[in-house]
Amino acid sequence: MFGALPIAYFSQKYGIRNGLVILFTTRSIAFFLLSLTNSFICAIGIASLVGLLSRGTAPLIESALVMDADNNITVKMLATLRMIRNIGFAAGGIPAGYTVWVNTTAGYRVIIAISSLIFLLAAIICWQFQNKNIHFQKPHSLLKIVLKNYPFIVLTSVYSLAILSAILLGIGIPLWIIHKSHVPSWTVGLIQTLNTFLVVLLQRQVSKNTEQIKVSISRFQLGVTFAAIGSGILFLAGENSSSIINMFFVIIIVIAFTFAELFIIAGAEGMSLSYIPEGQRTVYFAILNLGFAAATVIGPPLATITSTGTAWWWLIWALFFSCLVPVINFLPKPSTL
């Protein structure tokens, strides 16, 4: 949360290409040092630096792709980017999972060093980009302008609440499988596999026409509705169902929460394009990403409490998401700017 805006300001002043090159080079150096260190304290420090930089990278990549594109092209490119990113998660998960299975110090050092080389390659690729000049405003004046755009701030706040469903999918459901269900723990891997498959298959279709404000609102609402349905099913699953029934529940739940993630992100990003002034996408994308960053801060402890507590917590989540659905319809429209 602390890294996104300063990185966006820097890149808006000195160019997105330069920002990406510096980010990827720094991350490459950090991963290389991480592969060498024997100190836990140093490892935590380096990992914190990587985390600080990683949240600021996505808005820059998005801005580099869609800086001069109209909204129709933008939603298609952002959908393709999310699809490729999920393929990357799956591709990276294979060697990472094998490394964890082998469980040797040398294996961990090698996989982290390979990551360092990948970031270095990314920096070299980004250096080939054109370093487009962006109209620069001082951070304090730009922040005032963004904060005055209250419809966008409200949208970001609601998005941060809705995207908590993705944290429940990534953390809450695996913990529920381990602690509460009667299915084998290996099914935790099924979540990532099924989620990646559905995202790659459906991402572009879900994002179609979301540059239109009415379409993006309906997709946003549909995503939150899926989150409510998934939470309701988890409540009904309870703790005492048989392994076969719970396996069926796991598949349905993962599909519901994956659809929630797909529709929420597509809807929120599509809506955001209508709120962003021309030439300010870098900073506005960074602020929208803060909504997800906020969810990653408050979401994990809530997901842990929910998954290790009683089934009633899932009912609370179902009611929470159900109440959020009509709120989206009353978000301030861009015309109020």
Score class of each variant (00 low, 15 high):
260 A>D: 08
140 H>R: 12
172 G>H: 03
129 F>P: 00
279 G>S: 04
263 F>P: 03
248 F>I: 11
176 W>I: 00
101 W>Q: 12
130 Q>K: 13
269 E>K: 04
86 N>W: 07
139 P>N: 05
337 L>P: 01
69 A>E: 15
19 G>D: 04
48 S>K: 01
169 L>N: 09
118 I>T: 12
73 I>L: 10
166 A>K: 06
185 S>Q: 14
168 L>G: 05
158 V>H: 00
76 K>Q: 08
147 L>T: 13
206 V>I: 09
18 N>A: 07
249 F>I: 01
115 S>Q: 14
115 S>A: 15
125 I>P: 01
198 L>Y: 08
13 K>T: 07
85 R>M: 11
79 A>G: 10
283 V>A: 09
211 E>W: 11
184 P>C: 08
30 A>G: 10
47 A>S: 15
71 N>D: 13
60 L>W: 02
172 G>L: 04
236 L>Q: 09
135 H>A: 14
337 L>T: 09
276 I>T: 06
105 T>K: 08
37 T>G: 11
52 L>E: 12
12 Q>Y: 00
88 G>N: 07
321 F>M: 05
222 L>V: 09
275 Y>T: 04
327 V>R: 05
199 V>L: 10
101 W>R: 12
220 F>V: 04
300 P>K: 02
279 G>K: 01
236 L>H: 07
327 V>E: 02
198 L>P: 05
21 V>C: 03
101 W>E: 11
328 I>W: 00
277 P>Y: 09
120 L>S: 07
211 E>H: 13
80 T>I: 12
39 S>E: 07
17 R>M: 09
40 F>Y: 14
226 F>D: 10
259 F>K: 03
34 L>K: 09
97 G>A: 06
242 S>D: 06
106 A>D: 13
328 I>P: 00
11 S>T: 09
200 V>T: 09
49 L>N: 05
335 S>G: 02
202 L>D: 01
264 I>Q: 01
114 I>N: 06
97 G>E: 06
143 L>C: 02
70 D>T: 06
218 S>P: 00
175 L>Q: 10
95 P>I: 07
290 L>V: 14
281 R>Q: 15
